[in-house]
Each structure stands twice: as C-alpha cells, then as structure tokens.
Nucleic acid binder design. Structure first.
Length: 414
RNA sequence: GUGGCUGUAGCUCAGUUGGUUAGAGCACCAGAUUGUGGAUCUGGGGGCCGGGGGUUCAAGUCCCCUCAGCCACCCCA
C-alpha cells in the first residue's frame, strides 16, 4: 500500500514541533495576560460573508485563497483565513459593546490556499491580540508594546525590526489614493504587468513592489505623508512619541501598506531577514471601521497576528520535555506493583516512565533513552524488605531506600 | 496562479558513459551481558529508487506526464 501523504500545504506537528508550538503559545499567552489580554476562541469556520465583505472584495485572500464550501443547508461557509474578522463578529454576536474596552488573545489554525513555501503553509497557526474600544493612540502604543514584549520573551527580538506607517483616516486615504492613481496612470508604460494589475485592484500595493522598474516609478510618486489630514498626522505623531518613550525602535516606512481593506491609521510589521521571502513575522494595524462595516456599533479596534511556524523557525531550541523517573520492575509481582507505584508518584506530581517489556538490561536502556533522571529498580528481594533501589542515572550511584522515602527522595532529585 | 531546482532506507547522503542481487553513516531491533543504562563488538530487520507511462536486450540513471518539497514572483503571518 502506498504511503499516505498529508494534504498539500498541511503538515503534522510531530512531538518536537508540537512542543515548540505549545511553548510559543504559552509564552505569548503569559505576556498577553499580564497586559490584560485574555483568551477567546472563535469557530474555525464562519459564514463566507464574514471574510468576503471585510477583507476586501478584490483582495487576493478573498478572490483566490479562501477555502469556501457549501454547507448541506445551502449556506456558504469558509475556513477562517485570519482571526480579526472572526473576533469582530464574535464581539457583535456576543453583544459585548457594554464591556469596552476589551482585550483578546487567540491562537489557532488559519487556512489560505496559497502555493506552499517554507514559512507558508495552507494550514498555518497564528497567535492574535486585539484591543477593541480605544480610539486614542494609547491603544496603538499598548498593542505594539505587547508585540514587542512577546517577541522579546521568545528571544527573537534581536532578529526583527519594526516597520511603521500610517494609512491615515478615510479622508487622508481618499485624497492620497486619488493623486497616487493619477501619478501611476501617467507612468503606466513604465510599470510591470503585476503593477498594472495592482493599479486597477489595489493601487497602494504598487508602492511595495519588489520589481526594479516599479521601484524607480515609486521613487517619484507622491508621498502619503503629504496628504494626511492634520488629525491623522497628529495621531501618528502621538503613536511615534509613545514608542519613543518606551524605547521601542522603529523605521517609518511610507511604502508599507496593508493587504486587507479594513485597516486605517497605524500599520506595523515586525520583519526579519532570517526567513527568506517570508520576512513578516508579526503584523497588524488599526481597524476603526471594521465593526461598523459588519453591522455592529461604530467601535474602534487595533490588533496584530503572528505566524507560529515562522516564530518557531526563529526560536533557538525547543524546550526539552521534563525528565521522567523510570520504574524498572523485575519479575511479575514487581510489575504489578509498579503500576500502583506509578499512579501514586504521578499523583504526587512526578513524571513516570515504565517499560512494559524486556529484561532488566533492556529496561535500563529504555530509561536512558527517555533521558530519565533516575531509575527505581525493584524485584522480590527489595519488595520483601519494603524497599527499592534508587539509581541516579547521571552519577551512576545506587542506594537502597524504604518505599515510603521515595516521594521525598525523588522530589529532591528533580 | 507563473518561473526554476530537487525527490534513493526513519534521518543525512553515495550510486561511474544506462549493465549482475541498490550501498554507507546515524537511528531501530537482537545477542555478547537471565538483577543494572551510556561505550564497544557481532548479527538482524528495513527500499514498488515519489507515482505513472515511454525509449532500450537492459532504467535509480535517458525522455514525457503527474505528485510533493524547496527557491523566487504573486500574496501574506
């Protein structure tokens, strides 16, 4: 029979990877908790509208990357491609507007049907933080500071840099978009095919094209910062000052734009050079219009998401599993006794490994293989005396102790 | 979706201009050691050479298709 394969772009988290992922989530959740961001979990699929209407009808995510299907009841459902729209929907569905401001932490799988590469799978995992209900720059500063703290706690801060930009308010965006499109149309013959397409669908995207020709055109393009309203400009200034106060370094990158329609004002990305073309490790921004767009009360929001697979590739070493204590019974009576002993020691908080087969030598080898801290060896001799042999597997020292001393002795070892 | 590179044991890889029964290291299993692990030695199990088709007396090797991974683009976390 042919070896079964996972679906393209998906992969199993085998124990080493699973541990690394869990550790990243646990670290992030701990930091988020200190900032007042507490867990929320939304369904993995939603009505297609939740994403189609909010991410932008022309965005790549909506037009070609969503896993959408018709439910047996006739509804169009979609596996979530990102978390923010789901959380906004949950906020509205749950009638949470009276509890503002709200801070949420979420983690879980997301789905986008892209061509797989390293750091880019069709099912991938994100951690996500959202702050809903704070309209002032405090929110932007807090959310970025949280991101910074999480990356620091994961030990990857020295490998990333923060790119910062403002998309302005609606008025600023409309004004800038107008002059940009006008400029680009004048230079359309110099643009790449991709950018001509972008010009129709999402003109701001031309700004961060990697094509050399496009870059030259962009050099001479009008700058978004010149078209900000006074209010939008002041808002961004306050965000920058707040980051300065916290000593968080950033580069203002006026060519950085967002792929999803609902963003406004502050946009930010933590990027790295260590992951090839998938340089974005954590990204987010403000989405003041999103909740109203979805039919909820006009409510500001800001948040970010980070790819766990990408973080995992940067985190130095996955944490080692705890070292167990190995039980090594000799003989049938001892084997039966081992099950009871294991339950009691586990109940006392110890990690216990038992090999169910093999002679003493084999079981000792297994103890070594699972990196046990110590082995408890016992057969008829010891049991008659009410004792066990306790062998320190690091030093090789072995002593016989009373069974009722075990818990105490082992606690001192691990 | 576009272009390119690569698929040989669980892992990392050899495999000559096409030529007997496809190899190594590590890992795994067992024995040397029937109450003592790591080291050593000995032996063993493991491969539709990614899959399918073609050329040939003969294909791991050449050609085509396909699947998957990787790299870049696109896009994005």
């Amino acid at each position: 029979m042919k070896k079964p394969q996972p679906v393209r772009g998906t992969h199993d988290l085998l124990p080493g990877d699973a541990r690394a992922h869990a550790a990243i989530v646990a670290t992030a959740q701990g930091i988020a908790g200190r900032h007042g961001y507490h867990p929320i979990a939304t369904p993995i699929f939603e009505f297609t509208d939740v994403f189609a209407r909010t991410l932008g009808e022309t965005s790549d995510v909506v037009t070609k990357e969503m896993y959408s299907f018709e439910d047996k009841g006739g509804d169009s459902l979609t596996l979530r491609p990102e978390g923010t729209a789901s959380i906004a929907r949950a906020f509205i569905s749950g009638g949470l507007q009276q509890d503002l401001p709200l801070r949420f932490f979420m983690s879980g799988p997301m789905f986008r049907r892209e061509r797989p590469q390293k750091g880019r799978q069709r099912q991938f995992h994100q951690i996500d933080a959202e702050l809903i209900g704070v309209a002032t720059p405090h929110a932007d500063i807090e959310v970025i500071a949280l991101a910074d703290a999480v990356l620091d706690a994961l030990g990857v801060k020295q490998d990333v840099s923060l790119e910062l930009n403002t998309l302005g308010d609606t008025e600023s965006r409309e004004a800038y978009r107008g002059v940009l499109v006008e400029y680009l149309r004048d230079h359309v013959s110099e643009l790449s095919d991709d950018s001509r397409d972008r010009l129709e669908r999402n003109p701001l995207r031309v700004l961060d094209s990697k094509n050399q020709q496009d870059k030259q055109v962009v050099e001479g393009a009008p700058k978004s910062s010149d078209y900000l309203t006074a209010a939008a400009s002041d808002f961004f200034g306050a965000v920058c000052e707040g980051l300065n106060d916290l000593g968080i370094a950033y580069n203002i990158n006026t060519r950085m734009v967002r792929g999803l329609d609902y963003y406004c004002h502050t946009a930010f990305e933590f990027v790295t050079a260590r992951l090839g073309a998938q340089g974005t490790v954590l990204a987010g921004g403000r989405y003041d219009g999103l909740i109203e767009l979805m039919g909820g009360p006009s409510t500001p929001g800001i948040g970010w998401a980070a790819g766990i697979e990408r973080l995992a590739m940067m985190v130095a070493a996955p944490p080692a599993p705890p070292r167990p204590i190995a039980l090594v019974p000799v003989g049938g009576a001892a084997e039966r006794r081992a099950m009871v002993m294991a339950r009691d020691l586990r109940a006392a908080g110890l990690s216990i490994d038992i090999a169910y087969s093999g002679n003493l030598s084999r079981r000792m080898k297994r103890a070594n293989k699972v990196n046990a801290r110590a082995a408890i060896v016992f057969g008829d001799d010891e049991l008659e005396r009410g004792g066990v042999s306790l062998r320190d597997l690091d030093s090789g020292e072995q002593i016989e102790i009373k069974q009722d001393e075990l818990e105490h002795r082992l606690a001192a070892l691990v």
